[in-house]
Design a protein around this nucleic acid. Structure first.
Ligand code: MN
Ligand code: MN
Ligand code: MN
Ligand code: MN
Lengths: 219, 219
DNA sequence: ATAAAAGTTTAGGTTTGCCTAAATATAATT
DNA sequence: AATTATATTTAGGCAAACCTAAACTTTTAT
């Protein structure tokens, strides 16, 4: 298997390259991983020997197909643990990262399979980022802003575009969080506010300002 | 903080010493940790320098007060994760250990505090071993082996001393698990077997071999 | 009491993952 | 095109955690 250090490098390359598209620079990686460029060069040689990356000296690095597969597996684990921490242990968005950064390296296929099941196969993490499938596919769901939904239309909250405590507290009071099932009940044309039902239980009126900050995917 | 290797050594010393009582030998540790005695000597010097153990060359090692504190913290984490794996992710007894062995090293006070809460502050792990408190106390309930109970006496199953699948399946068939309420109905002196009632419903005859592998605490 | 056996430590080495300083390649300026 | 600046790699080292082989202690047996 791969070491924690190797996994962190692979994930960093994946992220900096925008999912494997661009090549990534040594300094870019060294900043992102908080190590020195010399250490990065070192590791790139090792990853290249393991065929996890295509590495051309002085010209950056890219993941191989295998490297990409490994990256998506780690990201899947990271994001599933984030969901667990927020939904089950009531961590806040900003508290999860450091812990998930450690948990993503726990080795057990069964564990992650069962965790996924336990969480109800979530499709996005608490930051609204998509969770790769077990097969290693990153299904990029179309995100729409809540204000764009017509009456009757449904959506699952996948992202919130304002992380100020006041706004998050407001959403909390409303009972809205990532993963909440929303449906537009009615439209008030006067000020473009909408009546929204939350998780099929209560329903509230949201102002157009608020609607513009909430993004949903199809249920 | 302490490294994963250090934590594993400390836990092993704790366990082999029976909770910090006896001194522990280098070979004992090397067998338990599956390393060579030379590596153990190495590590003991380091742990001694950090005042986690009292180490007298050629005469074994013991945990210091601080070492004991660290050990109990790791054991607390290990056992809480085991409860999580069994109760929430439906792992079986024999599947949990390897995973918990990794998860016990995740560093986060908040995580373990919230996990404990999420699990409802369990007092024993799926193997019946007590979970140390947040304060680092090991509330040791008095455990008696089932074979030692007299007629009429009651107990709650807290531990099973054999984790072979065949044995666990047998217990399962009998309807015995951690937490089961047992009472001795009758004693058969011929072969020291006992008639035991389970959860006040049915009653079965258990052989002395089996009785020796089941431990109970007071109800 | 002495010798053999068993247990333990030390010496010297390896791998991993990091570091600093120096050398080298690429990119930007003039 | 030549020079300077920036990016990257190489060289040489270090700490952690392991190893084997050799040396040394303690225990056991004769
Ligand atoms: Mn990580
Ligand atoms: Mn995230
Ligand atoms: Mn462990
Ligand atoms: Mn256990």
């Amino acid at each position: 298997m791969h070491s924690t250090a190797e996994e962190n490098y692979i994930k960093a390359i994946y992220k900096l390259s925008g999912g494997g598209a661009k090549a990534v620079s040594t300094t870019g990686l060294s900043e992102s991983l908080e190590t020195k460029p010399a250490s990065v060069s070192d590791m790139l040689r090792k990853l290249s020997a393991k065929d996890l990356v295509h590495y051309v000296k002085y010209h950056g690095v890219q993941l191989t197909e295998e490297g990409r597969r490994v990256a998506l597996k780690i990201i899947r684990k990271h994001r599933l643990w984030e969901v667990f921490l927020v939904q089950k242990l009531h961590f806040t968005w900003d508290e999860v990262h450091e812990v998930a950064e450690q948990m993503e390296h726990v080795k057990s296929e069964l564990l992650i399979q069962r965790l996924d099941e336990f969480l109800g196969h979530p499709r996005v993490d608490p930051h609204g980022d998509p969770i790769p499938t077990e097969a290693g596919e990153l299904r990029q769901e179309e995100q729409r802003v809540l204000s764009s939904l017509a009456v009757e239309q449904k959506g699952v909250v996948c992202r919130v575009k304002d992380s100020q405590p006041a706004f998050l507290q407001y959403l909390n009071k409303m009972g809205i969080q990532i993963g909440s099932q929303l449906q537009v009940v009615d439209k008030i044309p006067y000020d473009n506010s909408l009546e929204i039902s939350i998780d099929k239980t209560k329903s509230v009126i949201l102002s157009s300002d608020v609607l513009d900050k909430i993004f949903v995917i199809n249920p």
